[in-house]
Amino acid sequence: MLEWLKSVGESFYNAWVPEQRYLAYLSGLRMTLLISLFAVMIGIVIGVMIAVIRVTARTSRLKLVKVLDVIAKLYITVIRGTPMIVQIMIIYNLIFTSPNTNPIIVGAVCCGINSGAYVAEIIRAGIASIPVGQMEAGRSLGLTYAMTMRTIILPQAFKNILPALGNEFISLVKETSVISVIAVNDLMKMAGYVGSRTWDVIPPYVIAAAIYLVMTLGLTRLMGFFEKKMARSDRH
């Protein structure tokens, strides 16, 4: 028993210390964090745009909005209906064919395009959850559609959206691990790299798992904090 513990300890030591291997994880972590951050931003921008198109298409009779709505629906259907790894392979080989593209951009664009579809649906559902009477009340007072959206609908929708949006970001951080398949040196890739050096793959992956867990736990805490803060304003 003691012998086994000692060998496990040694494996983990080998996966972390020699040749400054911890630096490999740190650089991988840095890459994962940067990609997640930019992917979240791209996801929000795409998500908000698509959600706005889908929501306005409900009431607008403009031809352009209708056309955009069809494109938005297609985008959401395709992205949500296909595996992310397949999307990454297609996007990578279709767009980023030059060998010296910045891996952060590649990863962020792939993950951001994926996340945008989910964010769009979360926002759209959040806006749709507000009773139509709220829009009618705003409009009946003479407020414009945009004013009513901004001052009445969106603040209410945001409270409903926040938990789901938080979950989406947490899963996005985890999902970025998939981009290790396209030669991006993220945390997952670096763990594999260490494993290939030590001929002992389990410890580096366990270390990677622990780092992912710490990140998602931290984000969960952060989201919980915001939700509590939002809830304080409607304790009545």
């Binding site: 009773p131 009477g133 709220q134 009618e136 009340a137 409009r139 009946s140 007072l141 003479g142 009445i152 603040p155 209410q156 409270k159 304003s233 409607d234």
Partner: peptide, 18 residues
């Protein structure tokens, strides 16, 4: 602009809850 001069009261009040 026209609706600013026409008040409306609804069956379900539709006050702004927040």
């Amino acid at each position: 602009e026209v609706r600013q001069r026409m008040g409306m009261v609804f069956q379900h009040f539709n006050l702004f809850p927040m």
